[in-house]
Every structure is written in structure tokens, then in C-alpha cells.
Design a protein around this nucleic acid. Structure first.
Lengths: 202, 202
DNA sequence: ACGCGTGCCTACCATTTGGTAGACACGATG
DNA sequence: CATCGTGTCTACCAAATGGTAGGCACGCGT
């Protein structure tokens, strides 16, 4: 585990800070201090703060895509694939909470950062869209507009994971156990919403 | 309409900027320039940037709560109330897009801003929660954890409205017409997910 | 031994940030 | 007219920001 290069350590720190405090609210000085180095060392590896964000987006998109691809590779057919995707996202959220925070943050930053992320994840989006359409055509899922359905699923998954303050307002502390409960509840909801023969139970 | 006080105009500008560019990314100088005044005039009405944010949260929460209360006052029973709430949120989004953007931004800023907003909307949350539970008890809705269900609905509604870049990535331009389609799709989804006798159609 | 590239550093810098101090215009009131 | 409160302004400021310039240590090939 000593193989973590300086650039990787910087990206780790940036992920933690951008994903929680936010991009604009994170100064290079503070980031460097947290890493036990000077700001100029960061600027040595990444020529500017924006370049650091771009590199972080690329790495994070790759990590996310890798996790999803891996989950899909070992998944079955039909609904099992939806479950596999959701579970793998929650697994990522449990192990690296900041990664989903970054996704949320980048979505808020808008172009060009958001464009970069969506472009990197575009292949997965395409696969998901055609998968949903095929399942609808086969009569396994209720018919919905695939793209808007994807937007709804995306928003719900990201929200269920990252909206910790709303969660607190609802009287639920964001613990690891709560994360599991949220995942289960989300899967039940999706099943109810999408499967034609679903009654909300498995 | 000339009764817009300076403080109100400042709040309007802050809403537009905080809700789109974000709180940290908005400088008092830029805000003032957009309003045709000097930064010191802003600081005359609001002693600090943070105080401006707090005042904006309070006003926005009031506006949002008012819209929801108004919609609920004229709504029927059961599912019609859910529809009324969703429609009124989308109506707000159509007329004042920045307001939902601010909600999203404040949720991201975390405490104390997020706490302030959730506290202000707490009564509505309580009503919504007990409403859902009553509907479940009456057998009209599938049984779910009410609080997690609320979190999911909240995330989906806010996401469907504010995730314009994801929307673009999906090939859908965020126009007024698209907003209507998203609302319809969202309502259909919620109906499928929640109503026990639903088949996804009206 | 010597050069040389790599990696991190100190020393600066211009600009921007939120915020303070205080002057000036102006309308109302005595 | 004198005074006073209100609202906006100019003039500053200390701190922080992203970024530049350049030096220094160290390991490696010759």
C-alpha cells in the first residue's frame, strides 16, 4: 500500500474535500495542509486547481464505471441487474462516501465539469437506457420514458446517499446501518415502481 | 410592483446567484454590481454574507411553505394531495427556477444553513409523514418506511427539477415543455410505486 | 566527480474576498 | 434654518486566493 504516488494522495485529498466541503470552498492551501505538503507541490503535479478537478473527475468516473462494470459482469438477467447496479453504488458509498459527494458536487458545478463527468459515464448510460427499454418491451417492466426514468433513478440514488442533512431532519442518523436500510428501502421502492408483477415484497 | 424594497431586491439577486452559481462562488461585489449598487449597500441591509444567506433561507422557506400550504388547502383527499404537492413544487420551479436551486444548494452547504431550512419546513414534513402513514394504514398505499420514503420523494422531485446537466447528458433539453413532461413522468412513477391498485395509468 | 532531471520547497505577487470607517446627500421634523 | 436619521457612497484594509519564479536536495547515469 506504499505505492500511493503523490499525485494519487493529492487526488484522494481533493476527493475528500471537493466531495464534502465543495470545490469553491476548498482552497489549495487548506488541501495541501491536510496532506502535509505545500500548495506548490500540488501545483507541480496539477498545473491549476481546475486541472486538478478535471483529473479527479476522470479518475472518479473511471472508479465508478469500474465498480458498475464489475457488478454487471457477475449479475444475472432482468431485475437482478438493476439490483446489482444499486447495490454496487451503495457499496461504493459505504467504502468511499466522498465519491458520491463528488458526483453530486460536479453535477452542481455545471459545465464544463459536469459535461466531463457525464461524457465519461455516457457508455453506461447508453447501456442502462437500452436495457430498460428491452425490459419494457419484454413486458417485465412498466412502460416509462427511459431517459426520464433514468434521471429519476439517478436523483433518488444519489439523494438517498448524499442528502445527510435532510436525513437528519427526518430524525434518522446517517450511520452505516442506516445506509443499509436506505438501500433496502430504495430497492423496494424501485421494485414497486417498475416491476409489473410486483407487490412490493420480494 | 414598485413596492420592492432594497432589501427585497438584494434577496432576489442573492436567490438568483446563490441558487445557480452557488453560495461560495457568489461574491458580494458581483452581486452588488448585478443590482446596480455597491457592496456596502448590501452590507448595510445585511450585516454579513452569512446573515444574507440566513435571511434568504427564511424568506424562501416561507415562500415554499406558502405555496405548498396553498396547494394543500384546495386539494382533495388521498392521492390528490400528493399530486397537489408535486404540482405546486413544479409550478414554483417554473416560475422561480432559482428557488429549487437554492434548496439544493442549501442542502449541500450543510449546517447551519441546512438546519435552518429543514427547521423552517419541519411542520410540513411532519404533516407529510403522518399523511403517508395514514394512507398506508388505510391500505391505499404500499407500506414503506415513511421517513425514507419522504427522503426518496424529496430527492427525486428536486433532482428531476434541478439536475439540468444530467438531463442534457440524456439528450433532453431543459425547456418549459420538458419540465411538464418530467412532472408527468414523475407523477406516473410515484403512482406506480405507491398506489396499491395502480397499473401505471390514470 | 559531475551534470541533470525530479520533486518539493521558500519567497513573492496581483487580485479578490468579506468587512470597517466615515463622508455625503436628502427628506422629515423641530 | 438647524438637526437628525436614513440610505448610499468612496476609501480602505487585512486576510486569503490561485499562481509564478526560482532555489535546493537528492538520486542516477556517465
Amino acid at each position: 500500500m506504499t505505492g500511493a504516488t503523490t499525485a494519487d494522495r493529492i487526488l484522494d485529498g481533493a476527493l475528500a474535500s471537493f466531495g464534502s466541503r465543495g470545490y469553491e470552498a476548498t482552497s489549495l492551501d487548506a488541501l495541501a495542509e491536510g496532506l502535509g505538503m505545500r500548495k506548490q507541490s500540488i501545483l507541480y503535479w496539477f498545473p491549476s486547481k481546475e486541472a486538478l478537478l478535471e483529473a479527479l473527475i476522470d479518475r472518479s468516473a473511471g472508479e465508478l464505471a469500474g465498480a458498475l462494470e464489475g457488478a454487471l459482469a457477475g449479475a444475472g438477467e432482468g431485475w437482478a441487474r438493476v439490483e446489482a447496479v444499486v447495490r454496487s453504488v451503495f457499496r461504493v458509498a459505504a467504502r468511499r462516501p466522498e465519491l458520491l459527494g463528488l458526483v453530486r458536487e460536479v453535477g452542481r458545478l455545471g459545465p464544463p465539469a459536469a459535461t466531463r463527468l457525464t461524457l465519461a459515464l455516457d457508455p453506461l448510460v447508453g447501456r442502462a437506457s437500452s436495457f430498460l427499454e428491452a425490459e419494457m418491451d419484454a413486458g417485465h417492466m412498466r412502460r416509462h420514458e427511459p431517459r426520464l426514468l433514468l434521471l429519476a433513478i439517478y436523483s433518488t440514488v444519489v439523494g438517498m446517499i448524499t442528502e445527510v442533512d435532510v436525513l437528519r431532519a427526518l430524525g434518522e442518523e446517517p450511520t452505516a446501518r442506516s445506509l443499509v436500510r436506505r438501500r433496502q428501502e430504495l430497492l423496494r421502492l424501485l421494485r414497486s415502481a417498475l416491476l409489473v408483477d410486483a407487490d412490493g415484497r420480494g
